[in-house]
Computed example of a mutant assay.
Amino acid sequence: MTDRFLEGKTALVTGSTQGIGLAIATALGEAGCRVAVHGLGDAGIVKKATDTVVDAGASDVRHFDANFMDPDAIEVMMRQVADWGDIDILVNNAGIQKTTPLEDADTGTWNSILAVNLSAAFHTMRLAMPSMKERGYGRVVNIASVHGLVASRDKAPYVASKYGLVGLSRTAALEYADAGNRQSGGVTVNCICPGWTETELIEPQVQARTQQLGGGREAGVADLLREKQPSLRMSDPSEIGALAVWLCHRHAHNLTGTAIPIDGGWTAQ
């Protein structure tokens, strides 16, 4: 039986209508959380996501659709979620990516990637963390990337956003390190840095490799993994979700300011 140690807690997971975000929202629901699901998309995608989290055992689920290009919309959403329930757990997962050489990247690409991947996390954290400090318990889990730890070609805006997210997280961890205590659980801020994970975000890169090789999708995936990820295995989103939930335990009160790779050895090289 699942340990429902998060009964009575409220979590906001951004970018959670699919992929890693939905896996994290589902795992938090299994642990008993009330879950605020966030994301843009058609009604069918939203209903499927919220139904998945409800079926996992979440005590309550609501959907929010703030556009993360707009700081004012983020502020409105944060007030709405707080009115529903004080945010105990904040997972910043919303992200976008575009691969392009630096010389071909334009201002629009830079601004949009930085807005969604980095600035939005700044806004949600600054609005959610003071009340976490007041209650003596809070968890911020920011989904960065191996590209918050090492760079790759043709991803300048994305890499910059993820390095920035790691830096933002470490600074917030220091500022809130003495909040709460062992009994209350404290306030922690950590990053999870996935390598290649089975999500729609990496599909364009898989397809590009497939076309280069002239083979099937499996050949494209294998070539992608061989270049960077020594395990030669993709991660499953549920594995990211399991780590995010573990970080929410009270016994993780002294684990803060970290950037934990789930990358099959990519950043160990």
Rank of each mutant, 00 (worst) to 15 (best):
M69S: 14
S119E: 15
G136S: 01
N93D: 00
M125C: 10
E75H: 13
M77L: 02
S59P: 04
I89H: 06
F122G: 10
A36F: 09
I24F: 02
N93K: 06
G15Q: 07
S119Q: 15
M69A: 15
I143V: 14
L114D: 13
G21Y: 05
T14C: 04
M132P: 00
W84G: 06
A49S: 10
N111T: 15
D55A: 15
I20Q: 05
Y137E: 05
A115L: 12
V146E: 05
A115T: 12
G57H: 05
T99G: 14
G108P: 12
V35D: 03
G95M: 11
A36H: 08
M132V: 11
V140A: 08
T100D: 12
W110L: 14
A82K: 14
I89F: 05
A105F: 04
A49W: 09
K98T: 14
N67M: 07
P130S: 05
R139F: 02
H63G: 03
I45D: 08
A73L: 10
V76I: 12
H63E: 01
G85N: 11
D70E: 09
N142E: 09
M129H: 06
V54Y: 12
D55T: 12
M125V: 03
A43E: 15
D83M: 12
V53W: 07
Q97G: 10
E30D: 08
I74G: 00
V146G: 00
I96P: 00
V116N: 11
R79E: 15
V116E: 02
H123D: 12
A27W: 05
F68V: 09
A43D: 09
M69Y: 14
L118T: 08
A128M: 06
V141A: 02
